[in-house]
């Protein structure tokens, strides 16, 4: 397989990684970099569990060629907590019971993080729209929406 050296920023740290042309960003993050917070859900672009933020935009890492992230800034759920403290979104998901089994949570949080950065005070319809690509099979979504609203009220994604 053709390989190239990929130079990109992951969670604030500049990295150089040798990747195959057909390596997916999801596999690079989980298997090469050990960042297993990003989940492999449906693995076909339908559930949003693998959502990460690339250059400020929510993106599905199971559909993203790693080689195309050359020069990009990639953020995963591991980037959110700082100094041992959860981000506002993480804390809100915890406090509002937005997390049950937890599998969809990193994708939900990254999709919500991308939303709140561009729109710190979204209405409920906007939150639902932004999380429309993320499936949760436990919560019924009400608590997730409440968590995002609480995080927004607490001052956004940080």
């Amino acid at each position: 397989m053709a390989k190239r050296v990929l130079s990109f920023v992951v969670n604030g740290r500049l990295r150089e990684e040798a990747v195959g042309d057909s390596t997916l960003l999801l596999d690079l993050l989980r298997e090469q970099l050990g960042l297993t917070g990003t989940k492999r859900g449906c693995d076909g672009g339908e559930c949003g569990a693998c959502t990460v933020i690339v250059d400020g935009r929510p993106q599905l890492s199971c559909l993203t060629l790693a080689a195309r992230c050359d020069g990009a800034h990639v953020e995963t759920v591991e980037a959110l907590a700082a100094g041992g403290r959860m981000s506002a979104l993480q804390a809100a998901f915890h406090e509002k019971l937005g997390t049950q089994c937890g599998f969809c949570t990193p994708g939900m949080i990254m999709a919500a993080e991308a939303l709140l950065r561009g729109n710190p005070a979204p209405d409920e319809a906007t939150i639902r729209e932004a999380l429309g690509g993320n499936l949760c099979r436990c919560t019924g979504y009400v608590k997730i929406i409440e968590a995002v609203q609480a995080a927004a009220a607490a001052g956004g994604g940080r």
């Binding site: 053709a2 042309d21 057909s22 060629l65 195309r68």
Partner: peptide, 12 residues
């Protein structure tokens, strides 16, 4: 899903 088949990525 399966992994991607091997291909060469060209970036014109």
């Amino acid at each position: 899903m399966e992994r991607l088949p091997a291909f060469e990525l060209k970036r014109p």
